[in-house]
């Protein structure tokens, strides 16, 4: 009799302990488990585990945080549409104004990095016109500056950063980049008057010299033909050769300026991505 009770007791005791010891984990632990994948940059698995949490957790308390991390993971994987989708889900489940602001900024950052800056500006404007975020104006301007950088408008970027602080680090940086740019119109105008001059302005001396030489040669031959009364030859050389090299010279002046400017822009963007330590999109 005693032994039966004892056995019963032991079974129940064991069941009770097993109940606690089995792989039962709380939602919080599952969240941390998923977060661990995220921290280790295993973003695919992080998404799986956060999705698992969302699927089983009936309390809905992780609808914000899990979706935010899913969005961040997708963003790291370069899957921007999925990222925005999950940030939007997170946005619908925010509890505080701070969380709401944070999620909207994340959506803006994705729009900056995928260069849909038009959308970023619309979202930034709507944040700015919202009175709840009146004390966040500096942060809004900061991201507006970044959006201008990605829209390749460094002058406006400088203005945005300046409104945060007159000597803001990125303001100074944007100004210095802006000063380095070549003026495309100026390059072209130079080459209108002296073929090759625009190329000299952009530092392409060899190409400038070749352009100048061709234009001098064909110009001379054209004028000489007209002077010698060989009107047909003059027209042919002038229209087929001189004109071709003259317009080619104009195209090149502009092309070199654009190409050099792109290099300057990309060097600046490379610096921002790899060496700048402040918040980045």
């Amino acid at each position: 009799m005693i032994s039966v009770t004892k056995i019963c007791f032991n079974i129940i005791l064991l069941a009770g302990i097993a109940c606690n010891l089995r792989a039962q984990i709380s939602s919080e632990e599952q969240f941390n488990y998923a977060k661990n994948f995220f921290d280790k940059e295993k973003y695919f698995d992080a998404v799986t585990e956060f999705k698992r949490l969302l699927f089983f957790d009936e309390t809905d308390q992780y609808n914000f945080a899990a979706n935010k991390f899913i969005g961040l993971s997708y963003k790291q994987g370069g899957k921007f549409s999925d990222a925005v989708y999950h940030f939007t889900l997170a946005e619908k489940n925010t509890g505080t104004a701070h969380e709401l602001f944070e999620t909207r900024i994340e959506i803006i950052k994705v729009n900056i990095i995928r260069r849909s800056t038009g959308r970023a500006f619309i979202l930034l404007d709507s944040l700015q016109s919202d009175e709840t975020f009146i004390n966040k104006i500096d942060e809004i301007n900061y991201w507006r500056g970044w959006a201008f950088i990605f829209a390749d408008d460094w002058e406006s970027a400088s203005t945005s950063f300046q409104s945060i602080a007159p000597d803001h680090e990125l303001k100074v940086f944007a100004d210095s980049i802006n000063n380095n740019f070549y003026n495309e119109t100026f390059a072209k105008v130079l080459s209108i008057f002296i073929p090759g001059a625009g190329q000299f302005y952009t530092g392409e001396y060899v190409s400038g010299l070749i352009s100048l030489s061709w234009n001098v040669l064909w110009g001379y031959l054209t004028i000489k033909a007209f002077v010698d009364d060989r009107v047909f030859d003059g027209f042919m050389i002038g229209s087929l050769l001189w004109w071709r090299f003259y317009t080619g010279n104009l195209q090149n002046a502009e092309k070199f300026a654009l190409e050099k400017n792109l290099e300057i822009t990309n060097d600046a963007l490379y610096y921002l991505k790899n060496s700048y330590t402040g918040p980045k999109p």
Binding site: F44, G77, I113, D152, L262, Y270
Partner: peptide, 16 residues
């Protein structure tokens, strides 16, 4: 098939 961390370069592709 599982995607990894992408290289999110800021630079603009050079088509010249």
């Amino acid at each position: 098939l599982k995607w990894k961390k992408a290289d999110l370069s800021y630079e603009i592709p050079n088509n010249f």
